[in-house]
Design a protein around this nucleic acid. Structure first.
Lengths: 227, 227
DNA sequence: ACCAGCCTTAATCAAACGTTTAATTAATGA
DNA sequence: TCATTAATTAAACGTTTGATTAAGGCTGGT
């Protein structure tokens, strides 16, 4: 018997991830329909047949792009949740920072293609087409459910419907911060930088926590009146 | 002299707006690149050359779709702002409702294709490509600037950067409510309906106002400490 | 040296794309 | 009635698309 070897990963690494990163940029900039496999291959510096060799078709290429990044973000979120609830129930600010920080930080990670994925994830987060919904369901629903449960443990007054809404609000808020469309800078005449990760996280957490408490109070008052 | 007549509009109305509405749905569902003029024409029940006859090319077709709806929303917003500030400075809740309600309501207007435009506007609101940015700049920046100024008059403690961020947060929040991706219903096991316009507006306003006040306080405290 | 396996290539396919054209029909004003 | 204009059509343009194929190069194990 020969000893263990893994020549496969070593050899395929270059082209495989080059395609993935090129695809990430293309999907982010032009959408699924607008991106072309030919252009993705060209920018990755590989033959266009290589895209099909590694990823079979355009649909699976898209899923592979999302799978890689969502894994990075959600691993960090899950770890943070584990740590937070280990010593009892944390505060709302801690919880929301744990949920929002990984999302915002990956979008700010210029060196590793974060902004491109940020644009991509924003685009399909609010999309209603079947492909986007299937991908969202597979890669983001599990962490979403866990986060919503966590929010209700931290703020017991929060009803389930309000918790879901709050989570989606907070996420949509964090995503709008990742997108870096340049609109904030334009509207503020350059005052909003958004490259300051810490300030961005702080703003998002502050805004989200205040909003969540408002929904929880609203829910509470309604229950008292009707009950 | 013959009496007044407008045969042109009457004759072209049918096909012209049929194309526009079909295009709205196509762009919303498949994105700019994914939507095809052929399919748009087919679903509108017209020859595909008609699309170019009325709208020259795909780019102008897209702009025409946005122009029509943004006009509807922003006229209502501008009127509401005029009315609000006529008798002095309104409260934050009134202001935010004036800004968010038109956006949310048009997304809930099932009978007039609102949901399709909602999805479309969400998609390109966070997009960074040149086309989306140009359209956003032309059709949405003016009302955005006016709204941001209004917010600062109502909440003087709000710095300019915070006001811009707050506005973008609030809008992204309202848009995520319009989108109706089905995700809220799925995550809440059907509890979140989002077809109740009044409750949706109330939730969005409550969340946004609380968040804005939080940012204003944060800004205030920082100024006191550093000043 | 040789084979077997991944990796890479150029060439090719049918289908769909946005756009243009020329010709036809329907409605109008004189 | 007749020329004029607007609306509509079918057909074709050249290009690009996603996907497939068959062939060749490279590498490591024997």
């Amino acid at each position: 018997m020969s000893q263990a070897r893994e020549p496969v990963q070593i050899r395929q690494t270059d082209s495989r991830t080059a395609i993935l990163e090129s695809a990430e940029r293309a999907f982010a900039d032009q959408g699924f329909g607008g991106a072309s496999i030919r252009a993705i291959a060209r920018e990755a510096g590989v033959n266009q047949a290589m895209v099909h060799y590694y990823y079979q078709n355009k649909d699976q290429l898209f899923r592979s792009v999302v799978a890689r990044r969502s894994g990075q973000v959600n691993d960090r979120r899950n770890d943070a949740l584990d740590a937070l609830f280990q010593d009892g129930v944390p505060g709302l600010e801690e919880l929301m920072e744990a949920l929002l920080r990984p999302t915002i930080e990956i979008g700010h990670d210029d060196a590793h293609g974060g902004p491109a994925y940020a644009r991509l994830i924003v685009a399909f987060n609010n999309a209603a087409d079947e492909r986007s919904q299937n991908v969202a369901k597979e890669y983001y629903d599990p962490i979403a459910r866990r986060s919503i449960d966590a929010m209700r443990r931290v703020v017991p007054a929060l009803g389930k419907a309000e918790a879901v809404r709050s989570y989606l609000f907070a996420i949509s808020l964090a995503l709008s911060l990742m997108a870096k469309t340049g609109r904030a800078a334009r509207l503020s005449d350059g005052l909003c930088d958004d490259s300051d990760t810490e300030e961005t996280v702080a703003n998002a957490v502050a805004f989200a926590c205040a909003g969540i408490r408002a929904l929880a109070n609203k829910n509470n008052i309604q229950n008292r009146q009707s009950g």
